[in-house]
Design a protein around this nucleic acid. Structure first.
Length: 668
RNA sequence: AGCGGGAUGGGAUAGCCAGGAGAUUCCGGCGGGCUCAUAACCCGCAGAUCGGUGGUUCAAAUCCACCUCCCGCUACCA
């Protein structure tokens, strides 16, 4: 790894977190993919040799289980999505130099090799662990499909991660009171022998690694905490049929997070094999001659700053120079939810007939990379109309049209010092942005230069000069044409399609993707045709329609199933009874919750209900309510709730009795 | 409880890591200009004690401490 400022001579490998071959792509994925693509293109522009690699993540329990549900093999299932992704990438201008997948030969062989190295270096040991087992289905329950209680904080958690509580990674067997999330069957523990990677031995290596790590701050700060608290060794095998076999034990496969990041190397190797190792050996960064730059989502920081560098170090590879962890995207202020169809799907965006550059621009320049950003069609339209149509598109169009009409192309004049300097400034800003992995700043340079362009042309009024002072007019337009060329170059990382069109309209014959920023001062062709308008205005009416249909889409999904009828037996399975509230107390820490003691005839239950603020605590005792008594118990805010008190509406209106039914009376 | 991110003119954002002229840009408001340009563009004005308190410093939005509030992972539907 070098610490040299970019550009330097050694190759850089930019990676993008692997899309999981388990579902379609939405704007959240696009933020990752596009950010990595922009960084890679930007490196190229400043003369830094670089490639972008990634691949589909195919293994793991979710793929295996979803494939089974669809009645196809996991391989077929994953390949379906893999093919799909590869169709979508070009639509969004995402160009990988190599895009493989984790189940291919390269990755299987390399993963096996790396794990063997870990074993040889004595970094792996065996340990018997208790793992969850669905005795009815007679199969191991993958960690993702176990639910239970976090042993650290007591919150409800998923088998592999305390997703609702402390956010810790959980090792198999750690979770308490497990049940299968698939069948709902209670999970029992069985003793199995699994393999563990001695991550705990790498605390010093990782601390040093983090001290030097570039990229976003969250990727440095979050893992420091984990290291201070003490690293746990990492279980790297699973009881599953789908995956890369653990070398030496065909009954186990490697955990998906072992082979997934190795695909970064595999993909690099595949590229190197295709283009050869001369003059650049693209695999060199993995052995320290060059840089590795990871672009990921902030949800997988731990994997990329703890497990992955530990593995790399243990197996004798170089560690990454930068981890750039981007924030999430919200829609109208709320988090994406694929299950609730609260998302803008990549395909949907295309189906609206939009060009992709505006979306690339929005997703990468709305906030800093690390920041969560909000998407709404209104905000999107605002940026597109203001910055892309009004500022950038307008400047390009007005100046190139003027140049074409009056000079048939680039006027024969010299670029002014003011403009040349301003272009240099933009190039310097761009290079600085690349060195800071600041994707936002990379994208803004072209718009900022356009802003200057508009101001410049306005100030110099060539339309006024053209008759009286033709030389001065030619000079101004000469400047504007040069600015347009610089804008095309600077903008080509973020908005490759538009930039390529402008490039072509400027009469350039070379491929813009091969160009470097060195070309900003080279004169454009002396003759070129009429320019086209590069961006389309998003009209209010369209924005309104899009917003309405997005809302409808989300609501339709939420309501889905409301037409379904249930069998009487389903109703009958609910044990509804009359209960009498004996006491009510607020739950500490919770704004809306009360803990109630409810007499249901033969016993008194403790039930948590979201009634605080709607009913006075002191008026509740004595109230008769309807209680669902055979609901499974759940701990909320550390308080066990055994049953559910029924109420109607958003402002809960307790269901009670009209007559005087006694506690315990069944509701029929 | 934990971790991370954040609090900057009406709204949205930059600057904070590498402290230095009362602070960026966009949207919006008000006034003007221009007419080459996709009712686009340009100029000017109003509007911020940079969440609060204390500290370090010649100097703090920027560093430190404490506090308040917000957001995400997830929950106050059980």
């Amino acid at each position: 790894m070098s610490r040299d400022r970019y550009p330097h001579e050694d190759p850089v490998v930019v990676t993008c977190g692997l899309p999981y071959a388990n579902g379609d792509l939405h704007i959240g994925h696009l933020r990752s993919l596009v950010s990595a693509d922009i960084l890679n293109r930007a490196f190229g522009l400043i003369g830094q040799p670089s490639i972008a690699v990634s691949g589909s993540d195919m293994h793991g329990a979710p793929v295996a289980l979803n494939a089974e549900q669809e009645g196809v093999s996991p391989g077929e299932f994953a390949h379906g999505w893999h093919d799909r992704f590869q169709e979508l990438f070009p639509e969004f201008g995402i160009e990988f130099d190599n895009y493989g997948h984790t189940d291919d030969e390269t990755n299987t062989a390399l993963t096996t090799d790396i794990v063997e190295r870990l074993i040889e270096a004595d970094h792996v040991y065996e340990r018997e662990i208790e793992i969850a087992w669905d005795a009815i289905e007679e199969q191991a329950l993958p960690d993702r499909y176990v639910e239970g209680t976090c042993p650290y904080c007591g919150a409800d958690a998923r088998g592999d991660e305390c997703d609702e509580g402390c956010g810790r990674h959980l090792e198999p067997g750690e979770i308490q009171d497990p049940v299968s999330a698939v069948t709902g069957n209670p999970a029992e523990y069985r003793t199995r022998e699994h393999k563990f990677f001695r991550v705990s031995a790498f605390a010093d290596v990782l601390t040093a690694f983090l001290d030097d790590l570039e990229g976003t701050a969250n990727a440095r700060n979050q893992p420091r905490q984990w290291i201070e608290e003490g690293l746990q060794d990492w279980c790297i095998t699973r009881d599953l049929d789908w995956g890369i076999p653990y070398p030496g034990d065909e009954n186990l496969v490697l955990y998906v997070w072992v082979d997934a990041p190795i695909e970064y190397i595999s993909s690099t190797i595949q590229y190197a094999e295709r283009v050869g190792h001369d003059p650049i050996d693209w695999t060199a960064p993995w052995s320290g001659d060059g840089d590795i730059v990871h672009v990921i989502g902030r949800d997988i920081i731990q994997h990329h700053t703890v497990f992955w560098p530990a593995m790399l170090d243990a197996a004798g590879y170089a560690l990454p120079r930068a981890v750039c962890a981007h924030g999430f995207i919200t829609i109208d202020g709320e988090g994406l939810s694929t299950s609730r169809n609260r998302a803008i799907w990549a395909q949907e965006y295309l189906d609206e007939g939009f060009e992709t550059d505006p979306l690339r621009y929005y997703l990468t320049t709305t906030g800093g990379l690390q920041q969560d950003i909000d998407f709404s069609w209104e905000k999107f339209a605002d940026r597109v109309n203001g910055e892309l149509v009004g500022t950038l598109g307008n400047f390009l169009y007005r100046s190139l049209l003027f140049a074409h009409r009056n000079y048939g192309g680039t006027p024969d004049a010299k670029v002014s010092a003011e403009v040349a300097d301003r272009i240099d400034e933009a190039v310097a800003d761009f290079e600085e942005a690349v060195n800071e992995y600041n994707v936002r700043a990379i994208g803004m340079t072209a718009v900022e230069l356009s802003r200057f362009g508009n101001e410049y042309i306005q100030r110099n009024e060539p339309w006024r000069l053209v008759d009286d002072e033709p030389e001065a007019a030619a000079g101004v337009i000469r400047d504007c044409v040069q600015l347009a060329k610089a804008i095309a170059l600077l903008g080509s990382a973020t908005m490759p399609d538009v930039s390529a069109r402008v490039w072509w309209e400027l009469g350039e014959s070379t491929d813009l993707t091969e160009a470097s920023l060195d070309a900003v001062h080279e004169p454009p062709a002396s003759s070129f045709g009429a320019p086209t308008e590069q961006f389309e205005q998003l009209e209010d009416e369209l924005v309104g329609d899009l917003t309405a249909s997005l809302t409808a889409q989300i609501e339709a999904s939420v309501d889905e199933g409301s037409d379904e009828r249930v069998a009487f037996s389903t109703f009958d399975s609910l044990d509804l009874r009359i209960g009498e509230i004996r006491s009510a107390e607020p739950v500490e820490e919770a704004d809306n919750l009360l803990v109630l003691d409810v007499d249901i005839g033969d016993e008194v239950r403790q039930i948590v209900a979201g009634l605080r603020g709607h009913y006075a605590v002191e008026e509740l005792p004595g109230t008769r309510v309807v209680v669902l008594t055979n609901l499974e118990p759940k701990t909320v805010f550390g308080v066990e709730s055994d049953g559910m008190v029924l109420a109607a509406g958003d402002d809960p209106d307790l269901l009670t009795t009209l007559g005087n039914s006694e506690p315990g009376a069944a509701v029929r």
